[in-house]
Amino acid sequence: MNKKVDSYINSVMKEIYLKKRFKKKIKLDLYSHIMEAAEDNEINQILENMGHPHTLAKEMMENYSDNFEAMGTLNAVLYGSKVRNFEIKSDKMVGSYPLIHVAMGYDQETGRRKVAKGAIAIGDLSIGLLSFGALSAGLFSFGAFSLGILSIGAVTFSLLFSIGAVAISLLVAIGAVAIGGLFAIGAAALSLFNAIGEETFVLFSESTSSNGTLTTIKFSLIFLLVTLPLLLYNFLKSHFNKTIE
């Protein structure tokens, strides 16, 4: 087979973010198309007429940009990361929300950043039962800034369990700076009851001395742990006000 044709088709296929069976079909059809054209033209001319592989792949993908079935979650995330302004939802629904929603970039009509909202939400801003994003909120959230029941990320807030560089949780927090209601583990660990780390502060501890600064910290910690669930509830309620009551 002509190396130029192979190279051209492979270059196109590198930019096709679809499931294997769709890619296989496209690859075979492109090959067949070039062979059909080769009966009338030189290969170089055919490839030139077909345009740059990037342009062909881009046009092909634009035709699949709303086809979740063909793309799948992983390809949707990869394609979205590449084009930066992209949104796709699975056909399957959980209540009134899509099972999977991937949203990245800005809404062209409103100019606002898109928010992924679904049972599984993935995007710059994501809200879902399972959410992944730069700013994510949900039952299980993963992201640079994440808020949830269980949160993992750089800066995390959670009701039950947080892991992050800065981790704050009503129950357990693990991180460089960990603030946990029940338990905190970290280089700097603050907790109501149990703290493990280089610098620890435990509110209800007999050994903890009491002075002005510590009293301030105590009240700040209590305030934070009391308001955290309210913040989370209000945040989720404002986005899912139809479902959370």
Binding site: K25, D29, L56, A57, E62, N63
Partner: peptide, 11 residues
């Protein structure tokens, strides 16, 4: 017509 438009339509 470009190939990138035609084939998705055929599919």
């Amino acid at each position: 017509l470009k190939e990138g438009s035609l084939y998705p339509v055929l599919y």
